[in-house]
Design a protein around this nucleic acid. Structure first.
Lengths: 108, 108
DNA sequence: ATTTAGTACCTTGCATAATAAGGTAGTGTG
DNA sequence: CACACTACCTTATTATGCAAGGTACTAAAT
């Protein structure tokens, strides 16, 4: 898979999932991996960024299957960013698809 | 517009346009700008990369409206890359959209 | 004649983000 | 006790988009 395509889109994916429920990092990797290739080295720095930007808050919970899990919870600010990113993603894909399909933008 | 979204996609856009006809750099910027934001500082390095990778060949032509134009012509290798990129783009957008729409990947 | 605007090319340095590759620890199984 | 799996994390590398700058040609306006 083309690495470059993912730039910025993973933010949208993670925020979208966190808008449904709280996730811990490893769980996000497993979930997103079902749709697009992703590695842990990508998600943890991204989550740290989200926390320092105030998009999420975190809390720890013990696990019976391994080390404690750090859960991420979307904030109001995070939700605002999500909405903007959703719109940007939609109009971006739209623009690209128009270009790929050969629609002539010069006509009116 | 989110800069990150563009990463890698501009290659696809430029190759797609060059597959229809030869373009000169400035013309590509003007055309693509109709669909997604782009600047000259992006396109010229990309075109240099394409040439050194053998995706395009170039030739000069005089212009009555200014300095000579450097036209870019897609090679067979460039066309092969275009086909791969098209498929990757489609499956990538598909994966992202499934995730965004909340389709449960665990079910079968 | 000189300035301005438009066309058309180019480069350098910066910012961003994904990843590979590595590390630390806990739990449970052979 | 070694191994696999879960779960967290960091660092260095890589790629690419862009702002900001530059050069040079043509044509119209001052």
């Amino acid at each position: 898979m083309n690495i470059q395509f993912k730039k910025g889109v993973l933010e949208l994916c993670v925020l979208t999932l966190l808008n449904r429920k709280d996730y811990y990092g490893y769980e996000l990797v497993e979930n997103i991996s079902g749709f697009i290739m992703i590695s842990e080295g990508t998600i943890y720095p991204l989550l740290r960024r989200f926390r320092s930007d105030g998009y999420v808050t975190t809390y720890l919970e013990e696990s019976q299957e391994g080390p404690p899990r750090k859960y991420y919870s979307l904030t109001g600010k995070g939700r605002d960013v999500l909405i903007i990113l959703q719109e940007e993603w939609e109009s971006f894909v739209n623009g690209v698809n128009l270009l790929l399909r050969g629609v002539d933008d010069d006509q009116e």
